[in-house]
Amino acid sequence: MQLFHCPFCGTRDETEFHFGGEAGNIRPDGADVPADRWANYLYMRDNPKGAVREVWVHMNCGEFFVMERDSVGHEVVSSTSLDGAGHAR
């Protein structure tokens, strides 16, 4: 079992959380978005080894947040509420 940190509730069991994708993958807006931009949004992932920034949701309270963690050692570095996390970075 791994413990994750919800910015609102605090430390909870990993089973209470759900992965929401890589942070910064913003949905294209508008009717004239080119196909390759949509393809990038839907299918292309950086999938880095090591430090990652990801969107997660705490299923019990519904808090969306950005978690910085290590994809190799699974160490969690930080959890920041989506409002203040600069998701678009």
């Binding site: 079992m1 509730c9 605090g10 909870r12 069991d13 089973t15 209470e16 299923m59 019990n60």
Partner: peptide, 21 residues
């Protein structure tokens, strides 16, 4: 029922308990 420590405060009372929310 839960892995949460009942002695520690948690802001939300919504938790996994007996395998359910």
């Amino acid at each position: 029922a839960t892995t949460l420590d009942p002695g520690k405060a948690s802001a939300s009372a919504a938790i996994s308990f007996a395998g359910m929310n």
